[in-house]
Amino acid sequence: MHPAPSVILFTALSGLGFGMLASLGLGNPDVTGLSAFIFFALAFALTIGGLLASVFHLGNPKNAIKAFSQWRSSWLSREGILSVLALSIMGIYAIGAIFLGVRWHVLGATGAILSVATVFTTSMIYTQLKSIPRWNHWNTPVLFLSLTIAGGALMTGQVRCAIAALIIAGVIQIVTWYMGDRRFAARASTIGTATGLGDIGQVRMFEPPHTGTNYLLSEMVYVVGRKHGQKLRVIALGLMVVLPVILLCLSQDHFTGAIAVISHLIGVFVSRWLFFAQAEHVVGLYYGQR
């Protein structure tokens, strides 16, 4: 799949932002006043910035408002509704914490649940697609949620929680890669089943339907950079998990924390780039590619 920068930014930043909001909603750290303002401003900047980035990949954004209508069937619609609900409730909670110096516990807990639920709906947009076997597995929501929790703990300075959550997220990431590499073969879709000609013999692309490229190839048969997949996985894991954990173990001052956060964020970007670039859509079979 084409790793569109807008979608990578959206999923990575909003995942981190909603993780922060969940942590703040549960009172970790228990802040009010100016320090609360700084935390909430950062969390809202990440989530709203991420959501805005997602609008940039729409072909026809003027109809985006209609995306709130199909929550009965569409995960993307559910994500839209939940994100607005989560941000609204956390907004009210933030006003209380910043300006009134009070923490409305029930509101905060509700906002935290909605924030995590929003990330779950984001992950389900990918998980539901049978046409992309790598994503079509419980690995996807577990990975997204574990990264959100780890990122949220890291961003809100919950050091012990962050170390544990980062290590868990790293293990889940490795398991997801290992299992994901085997998903396409397990789905048993081949050029033979795609064309229905497999019963006759070995099927090979003889001539493509068009000499140039098209939307399908540029969007769903993206193969650039896959050869560096293993190296990028090591880089992603190192920046996303290993380096932040080492830094947090060594020192807990603000500067080290900031380096750990930046390292984690870059690692998540690399991991998310791979999430798209290594995902193979079955339509590639019609073109003799994957």
Partner: peptide, 28 residues
């Protein structure tokens, strides 16, 4: 097309490559 926002998710969901997002109109 009056309701399509051009997110492209339906084209992702189709295993057969039957949907194409029009580059000029931005709709599926």
């Amino acid at each position: 097309e009056d309701a399509c926002m051009g997110c492209g998710l339906c084209a992702w969901a189709c295993p057969y490559g039957a949907r194409e997002l029009d580059k000029a109109a931005g709709v599926m």
